[in-house]
Amino acid sequence: MDHLGTSVLFAGNNFSRLLGGLWTTIWIALLALLIGLILGTFLGMMRTFKNRPVRLILRLYLEFFRIVPTVVLLFLAYYILPRQLNINLPAEQVAVLTFALWVAAEFSDIVRGALISVPKHQRESGLAIGLTHWQLFRYVLLPQALTLELPATINLATRVVKTTSLLMLISVMDVINIGQQIIEANGQSHPNGIFWVYGLIFFFYFIVDYPLSLLAKKLNAANQH
């Protein structure tokens, strides 16, 4: 037996279980991002409309998700969906739903910001050549907004990945939950295991998020020139 405790990581199928947990974390983040970005694009477009009630409602939606911490959002969905609306979803789907709605709120603001900073003459030229409102968004505004919003979107993605660490709170078998099981199962034989298991999870998150934030930084610098 070693005194370092690193052997806990590789004993039995521990390492592959941790990787499996990491995969759960990643697919939940990806799915939530995908749904949230699509929904957020539409909400962001609607926030540039002239209709006041629509803008007000979407603004309130955004502010709600900004004020309530994600932990609380997760518990709201976890307790309220089954009890009030009789919707019994597995915890993974509750998480995807919550994160997607949160991403949509945050992304709607990014999209709105990018859309209104597309030069005004672009919109007017589009209207002048007879594009419909939808064509204007589809062919003129959204493609131009995309480059502007890309760095902020990638930053949002790193936040989503970090936020998935909360999944263990609603008992999703994510990388942290599996790590805790391994720690508890090996607590007697490897009291130091806890240090290495949490260390590895720390490293996992870093490995996923670091390249993304590096990319966001590069794109941001490129945008400013």
């Binding site: 790193t158 970090k162 909360l166 942290i176 720390f202 998150y205 870093f206 934030s213």
Partner: peptide, 11 residues
């Protein structure tokens, strides 16, 4: 910046 607070706290 690239790791969650939860893991930092657990650590």
């Amino acid at each position: 910046r690239n790791t969650p607070l939860l893991i930092q706290l657990f650590f």
